[in-house]
Computed example of a mutant assay.
Amino acid sequence: MADNETRAKATALTGACIASALLDALYAKGILTLDEARGVLTSAMQQVGPHAQTSEGYIATGMIGNMLSGPYTARR
């Protein structure tokens, strides 16, 4: 059986994967516009912001930033 730290990391990874897949699906189906998808990611970045000085927060801001500058870039 996994220890608590491993389970916590797995839970976070699972949630992130589900949220990312859901955002992708909603955008692909035209349910969310590009601006709305970017709004979701911007909101997530703001929520992570206070934790950006931790290693986990720093990595999370980088991952969200990669989505904002990659598949959800404003320059399309």
Rank of each mutant, 00 (worst) to 15 (best):
L22I: 12
T61H: 00
T73A: 12
T61L: 03
L26E: 04
G65Q: 08
R76A: 06
R7H: 01
G39A: 01
M63R: 00
I18N: 09
A52V: 08
T54D: 09
P71T: 10
T73F: 05
A19H: 07
R38P: 03
T54L: 09
A19F: 08
A16I: 09
I18W: 09
I31C: 04
M45K: 12
L26P: 00
P50M: 03
G62Q: 02
Q53V: 03
T54V: 06
G70W: 12
T42A: 11
S20A: 14
T6E: 13
D3G: 11
G30F: 12
A25W: 14
E36K: 13
A60C: 07
E5I: 11
A21M: 10
C17W: 15
C17T: 13
K29P: 00
P50L: 03
V40M: 11
Y27D: 01
T61N: 03
N4E: 08
M1D: 05
H51L: 13
Q47M: 06
A19L: 09
R7F: 02
G62L: 07
Y72D: 00
E56P: 00
D35N: 14
G49R: 08
A74C: 10
D35S: 14
G49I: 00
G39M: 05
V40Y: 06
S55M: 14
N4T: 09
I64M: 04
G70R: 14
T11E: 15
R38L: 02
S20M: 09
D35W: 06
Y58W: 11
G30E: 11
A52Q: 06
I18T: 05
A74F: 15
L32V: 04
G39S: 06
M1S: 08
N66T: 05
T11D: 14
G15S: 09
P71C: 04
H51M: 05
A12Q: 06
Y27G: 01
G49L: 05
A37R: 01
Q53I: 03
A16N: 11
G70V: 05
E56S: 12
V48Q: 00
G30L: 10
E56T: 09
T54W: 14
V40S: 09
T11I: 14
Y72W: 08
Q53C: 03
T73Y: 05
I59C: 07
G65N: 10
A25Y: 13
K9A: 12
E56D: 09
L26Y: 03
A10F: 10
A52T: 03
V48C: 01
R7Q: 07
G49H: 11
M1Q: 13
S69F: 08
K29W: 12
L26C: 06
Q46S: 08
L68G: 04
T11F: 15
C17R: 15
L23A: 04
G15E: 09
T11V: 11
A28K: 14
V48A: 01
I64L: 13
T73K: 14
L22A: 08
G15T: 14
L34N: 07
Q46K: 15
A37P: 04
R75D: 07
R38W: 03
D3E: 11
G65S: 09
E36S: 11
I59F: 13
Y58R: 13
A74D: 10
Q47I: 02
L41Y: 01
A2P: 15
